[in-house]
Amino acid sequence: MAYDKFNILKSTAVPMPIENVDTDQIIPARFLKATERKGFGDNLFRDWRYNSDGTPKEHFVLNNPIYSGKILVGGKNFGSGSSREHAAWAVYDYGFRCVVSSFFADIFRGNCLNIGVLPVQVSPEFLDKIFTAIEADPNTELEVNLPEQKITILATGESEPFEINGYKKQNMLNGFDDIDYLLNIKKGIEEFAESTPL
């Protein structure tokens, strides 16, 4: 499925300064029973967000109206654990288009890139600066500039470059997906398969 194009995103951000946020927290397994990709945002961070009776947990950041925006800022090792793409879907479906952290788990990072959520890895120092800026003013905006591969805290003007491989960058800019690419080289794949016995 081709996805939204990503160019420059300017938005306030939701801070979650917790390390090792695993995909079981992002979307617990009991919400993985759907056969279609819809509605996962309702259960994003379900058990941190809601009490067992379904009432919101007051102190959780997503329930705090002063924080909002299309950017989620998490602590080190964000998205560890299960490979469930549902975690990335939940992040997307809730309305986030970018996740910022000082370190991402591998599969979660790949899943995000495959559905059009941009994972931006920054230095631990820059991550601290972002958290500090949002703490000082929840309306602080971040600018994520994909063409220039740069993230900026607009209030202070501080910025840092980020990495993304050239192929994925083009996909994100244009809303292309990997399957389109693979289907285009199908003949080569079939030749390869013939030389690779089961």
Partner: peptide, 9 residues
């Protein structure tokens, strides 16, 4: 392990 987009691939 892979994500569902990759399962589709």
């Amino acid at each position: 392990g892979i994500g569902t987009s990759e399962v589709e691939m």
